[in-house]
Structure formats: C-alpha cells, structure tokens
Design a protein around this nucleic acid. Structure first.
Lengths: 152, 152
DNA sequence: CCAATCAGTAGCATATTGCAACTGATTTGA
DNA sequence: TCAAATCAGTTGCAATATGCTACTGATTGG
C-alpha cells in the first residue's frame, strides 16, 4: 500500500515552499514549543506538562497528540509500571537550537535591563554562549548579508 | 510618574521566569514570525505583507501594531511620498537566529527526503551552515548536556 | 477496600481568527 | 480633470480555537 513517506498526517501548509512556514505549521502555536521546552528539561508525564505550563488539559491532550502524530514526540509505556510517557524523538530534540535562540532572544529583549532571569548552562555550570550565525568562512551573517534562494 | 522601563505595554506573561515563554508571549502565534521573516526579506508595506503571508488584513493590522508596540518593528513615513512603512528595529533583527533555526529545522524535518525547498545563502550564494550550539570551549551541546539554572 | 493520582472527555463560555464588505485618502492614467 | 485603482485600514458577523469546570475510568498506595 502506498505510503510514500514515513511522515505525519499531511496537513495543508500555510506556504508549502517555505521551511519557516512549515515549521510554524507544526509548532507555531501558543503551546507546542513550551511543551517541547519542558520535554527537553526531562518532563515525560501528562500531569507534569500540565503543571509546568498551566495549559488546559484538553488542549494539552490535543498538542501531545499532534506532536506525536508529526513525529516530534513518541508515546510509550514507562519502563516501570504501566504508566504512559512522552519522550522527544530525534526530530523533537533537533528543535534544541530553536528553543535556545528563542531563549537567548528573550533574555536579551524581553527582560528589563536590571531584571534577573534564568540561564542555560552546560555540565560545568558555564553559560551557553550566544548563537551567532556565520558563513562557512566564519564571517558573521545577518539579515542584510543573506537571502533566500528558491529551489531549483 | 513611574514608568520604570522604556519597554512595551506590559502584558501578563505565561511564565514570567522563563525567557522562552516570554519570547513566545510576544511572537508565539501563528503569524508574527512570518511577518518578521518577510520583514527580513525586505518587505515594508502593509499590502506586501498581506500578499506574501495570506494573513487576513484585520489580523495583520493587529500583528503589526503588536510588533510595533513591543519594539520589534518601527513604523515610519516612507522617504519618498507620504506612504507608511514598517521596518525591523534592532530587537526585531535580533530574531534572525530564531528564524534561521526554524528554517533549518524545517528544511531537515518538514520536507520529505527527496523534496526540494529553498535555501538561505550568503552574499556569494553559499548556503548558510547549520547552527550547532557549542559550549565556550567548542564542544557540541544538546538537551542532555545543558540545563536551566534559576536566577539568583 | 478507600482515597488519591493519572490521563484523559464532555459541555459550555469566552477569545481569537477569518471573511467579506465598506471607508477614506492618495495615485495613476486616459 | 475625472474615473478607476491602490493602499491601509475598519466594521460586523461567522467559524474556530481555547479555557474552565466537572466528570470518568483505570491504577496505585496504604
């Protein structure tokens, strides 16, 4: 039978051409990325997601289903007991740079000058350096030095 | 009178502690980041934003206002003529890494294996390398090698 | 066995978004 | 110059999405 890809239930994209738009079609709502953030912090149970985000339970049900359907989370039976748990797939973990850049932007632009906020640190407690896009030869890149090249 | 910061009309944060949540409170809806994406491509006029995104005009009005109110866009009178235009502020341009990582995730995970898509290239037409978070000493970082440290 | 916890569902109220039509100020062009 | 078109919205109403509260049904712990 004709399943052409292993991918998710096809949805109709906002703009099928644009990778940014496609990504936002999957996780560009109020809650999905917060669920992913918490999953990255090690959260696995329905109740814990609910407690941390404050999301309504029916919406959480919906989001967990969607993320699972699109292959960002997988649902499995917990090793001990018969409790369910949600864990990030490789695709889900690959959102790490997205969450990180959102975090870094927020730290810099969504807090007042003196205001304190949490920080992301590595194993040794050293803050994660700021992401700075560069070209292959190392020169910094920004909006003025890049552009989108349409697919051939 | 007591205006303590120069910042935007204070909104009530989903989770005031978390920079990710704060960022998503500002741009974590269906459309804002697409508007920012287009602004990075050089779009400045209401109509052009509308045409590119396909967003309803009343919603676009609302989003442009919000982005302006929160300091991501500034609205000014176009140099020639008396037409209005919206341009990214420094804070808005600082979302470049966010858009870039969303794009890179999408290219990799939201297209079927053989499917073509656009690419972001630099001045010389060379594709922008993939963002890979590292610690200060250069070792790659992921969800398992980082954690959030609460503010002191 | 009883109470508590977990993972949801169901029903209804509110909020957000989308659609289509309308305005009012330019701008174009015949 | 006058009509048509474009730009940047606004308004009203319909369709969706979200949130809140209460309920269920399966485990689990004591």
């Amino acid at each position: 039978m004709p399943r052409t890809t292993t991918h998710a239930p096809d949805l109709d994209w906002t703009d099928p051409e644009c990778p940014v738009a496609r990504t936002l079609d999957l996780v560009g709502d109020r809650w999905s990325l917060l669920v992913v953030r918490d999953a990255m912090d090690g959260v696995r149970s329905f109740t814990e997601f609910q407690r941390r985000t404050g999301i309504a339970r029916n919406i959480l049900t919906d989001r967990l289903r969607k993320l699972t359907a699109h292959g960002l989370l997988s649902q499995r039976t917990a090793p001990s007991g018969r409790r369910q748990e949600y864990v990030l797939t490789d695709a889900g973990r690959a959102l790490f740079p997205v969450i990180l850049t959102l975090r870094q932007w927020g730290e810099r632009h969504a807090f007042a000058p003196g205001e304190t906020h949490s920080t992301l640190v590595d194993q040794h407690g050293i803050p994660v350096p700021k992401i700075a896009p560069t070209s292959a030869d190392g020169t910094p890149l920004g909006t003025d030095t890049t552009h989108v090249q349409k697919a051939r």
